[in-house]
Design a protein around this nucleic acid. Structure first.
Lengths: 209, 209
DNA sequence: GGCGAAACGGAACCCGGTTCCATAAGTCGT
DNA sequence: ACGACTTATGGAACCGGGTTCCGTTTCGCC
């Protein structure tokens, strides 16, 4: 099953070079089609764009989700690496978290339909889901933990939970300019904040008359 | 546009009584199937359950979304009516908003796949979308406005925006017990709170106490 | 150059929404 | 009560879109 599951990114060399070539052609074609038609583009379109048969796609990527994962693997990596970097470079852990989430939102909203694809439990999309979860959640958790440890946010929400929330909020952003996922994500993250000691500079809000 | 705009629920009297009867049978069957198989259940299943042909469904409900709307119309109404009631009975507008949102979340999470269906812009689901938007958004906006006027929340987010956010957060709740949309929605709504001017919230002061 | 293995292409299949139309059933005038 | 007309019904057929299958082609190695 997992010919692509090598520990390093270097998969074992495929014996035939047309295989390697085709795989690359496919990845390029898929990336191109994803940009123009979104992640939900028909497999046939990608095959056509790549100039290969449908069977070839399925040989390389057992399901569309695998193809999506492959195409975006690099960017997921980037996002993963950004976590610790932000933690090191930001004044507060909360800051780092905020910016990392922003990065993630950027990633999602710039790929048409990616967020939507992520929540399709149906189909064979568990691969996609799993890949994102596996790689991104630990980073998110780390940031969350750091902010919690610093007393900057309320605890009680896990990295997975937060990621899913953010991912969900990003669904449908591209088809509707009036929908601004970033604003909502900002709200969500703001909700995480723990007013240090709820000292209640409260002003107007929380006091019940 | 106008078909949904009837003052009363009474549509013009259907001439033939089998029509009325079948429509009701269909609604019942659909409701039953939705409960067991979720909102995304195949139209054929609903037809089978109702003991009618597929054509009959489409005669009554041009698209699946219309059927969904019809089935849930009553509960949407209930939600709509709850808005002003909460506003009247809650100590603060923010409280009312919080509880209304909670009601809405309840509604969404108890209907398998409804939230997901709501965001499918594809297909003929704009009817569904539109119905929810038309009826629920004004209520939400009202609550939001009241809370804003009372200086209890930051302004800058619209009713539509908030509803979409909440709806999105509720997607996928039913297939995954580890996902708790309510917690995230709570966070989101908490983020709405405006701590007058603590932290980096610079300037503006549109709160005017 | 020839041979076996691996890859390829794309027709075929499955599934689900939607359309269409011949047929059945209801309604109404007489 | 009956026939003509109107409207509703059932379900086969159609349209994508994902996925599978297999005869054919190509590759790599002797």
């Amino acid at each position: 099953m997992s010919d692509s599951r090598q520990g390093t990114e270097k998969a074992a060399a495929p014996q035939r070079k047309d295989v390697r070539r085709n795989k690359q052609i496919l990845l390029d074609a898929a990336a191109a089609v994803f940009v123009t038609s979104g992640v939900e583009a028909p497999v046939r379109d990608i095959a056509a764009r790549a100039g290969v048969g449908i069977g070839t796609i399925y040989r390389h990527f057992p399901t569309r989700a695998d193809l999506i994962v492959a195409v975006f693997r690099h960017q997921v990596e980037t996002c993963v690496e950004a976590g610790p970097a932000l933690l090191a470079s930001c004044p507060t852990a909360y800051d780092a978290l905020e910016r990392w989430i922003d990065l993630f939102v950027d990633f999602l909203v710039t790929k048409h339909g990616l967020a939507a694809a992520l929540q399709h439990d149906n189909a064979g999309f568990e691969t996609l889901h799993a890949h994102f979860i596996d790689h991104l959640v630990p980073v998110c958790t780390q940031l969350l933990d750091a902010a919690t440890a610093a007393g900057e946010i309320r605890s009680g929400i896990g990295g997975l939970q937060l990621m899913r929330g953010v991912g969900n909020l990003c669904v449908g952003a591209e088809n509707d300019p009036s929908y601004d996922p970033r604003a909502l994500v900002t709200l969500l993250v703001a909700g995480l904040r723990q007013p240090h000691r709820s000292g209640s500079e409260s002003g107007a809000a929380d006091g019940e008359p």
